[in-house]
């Protein structure tokens, strides 16, 4: 017995967008970081710190916008550790990223305890009650939340900035070769620090989007591995901000889809269904590697890390 109402296109689109937004924001940030030739595996830790700081700020100031901002800044703070270690001290980027990840998990578990079970007030509906009743468009938009829209606007902006502006070109050139960039009079360390910090900003914002906007709840380790998935999806998106949205939708969409399959009464093991997002992502990665050339848009500077 299959209930087709579970696959209403408008509902499915909205829920996919909601599930994808934190991942989309994290992918955008990590793409920028990797574009300047630095890999940051600490995205998950930065998201957690952003989620907790955002929740705490919303609780104290009573304003979710301040919460989102504080969350993003907390992400910057965490990523500055990675920037200091990797760019300043030339430490191993993999080790430093994992340190940021574990530090973020530990700090938020400890300092998050008093915030569990607190009630915050999130965003109001985007549309007034009158507009919500408008068929299709009204019902569609009323289900969206501010961070979903911010994510959708940020994606093309980051893409245009990276590919169509002078600073974007400078960032990309640093990511390709630090030596060449230095020879042309660019300070690569300065650019790389910026790249890591903007990644922290996005991942902190992504975490705050989850706690402040989406769930209005703080729970230990609430990001549930989405930060780690985002780092992987940067590869699927070929280090291209424009492709960040389809990559995020691939994962978030399949997560929303597998929950919806259950509401339709599909008699398949929930544990098997829960693997859908990962299986789909892996398949796309395989296919895209097969179709594209092996280099696949990776900044040349990144390859040095694994040498």
């Amino acid at each position: 017995m299959l209930d087709s109402s579970a696959f209403n296109i408008s509902d499915l689109t909205v829920s996919s967008l909601r599930s994808s937004t934190p991942i989309l924001l994290a992918i955008l940030g990590e793409t920028l970081t990797q574009r300047v030739g630095i890999i940051n595996l600490g995205v998950e830790g930065q998201m957690l710190v952003g989620a907790l700081a955002g929740f705490a700020a919303t609780l104290s100031f009573g304003n979710p916008w301040i919460g989102l901002l504080v969350g993003a800044l907390a992400g910057v703070l965490m990523s500055s550790l990675h920037a200091g270690l990797c760019v300043g001290l030339k430490a191993n980027q993999i080790a430093s990223g994992i340190a940021v990840l574990i530090l973020g998990m530990g700090l938020t578990s400890f300092y998050g305890i008093p915030y569990v079970g607190q009630k915050i007030h999130g965003f109001h509906h985007l549309l007034s009650a009158h507009w919500q009743t408008v068929p299709i468009l009204g019902t569609f938009v009323s289900q969206l939340t501010p961070t979903v829209i911010i994510g959708l606007i940020a994606t093309p902006l980051v893409g245009i900035w990276l590919y169509r502006t002078r600073t974007g070109l400078i960032w990309r050139s640093v990511g390709e070769s630090v030596q060449v960039a230095r020879a042309t009079g660019i300070n690569p360390a300065f650019v790389q620090v910026q790249g890591v910090l903007i990644g922290g900003f996005f991942s902190g914002f992504a975490g705050a989007a989850m706690s402040v906007d989406y769930t209005r709840d703080w729970v230990e380790n609430m990001t549930g591995g989405r930060g780690l998935v985002a780092v992987g999806l940067v590869i699927v998106a070929r280090w291209n901000p424009f492709l960040a949205l389809p990559a995020a939708l691939l994962f978030g969409g399949s997560e929303a889809f597998y929950l919806r399959l259950q509401t339709a009464g599909v008699a398949v093991s929930p544990y098997l269904l829960a693997t859908i997002p990962y299986v789909v992502t892996l398949l796309v990665l395989l296919v895209s590697y097969y179709l594209a050339n092996k280099e696949g848009g990776a900044p040349q500077g990144l390859t040095a890390i694994f040498r």
Partner: peptide, 24 residues
């Protein structure tokens, strides 16, 4: 209608499951 989340604690997934059920 039962929706399994497969984890004791993942508020984002729980919220999405709730939305999915309400939509149906």
């Amino acid at each position: 209608t039962v929706v399994w989340t497969g984890t004791w604690s993942d508020p984002a997934k729980e919220a999405e499951a709730a939305n999915a059920l309400i939509d149906s």
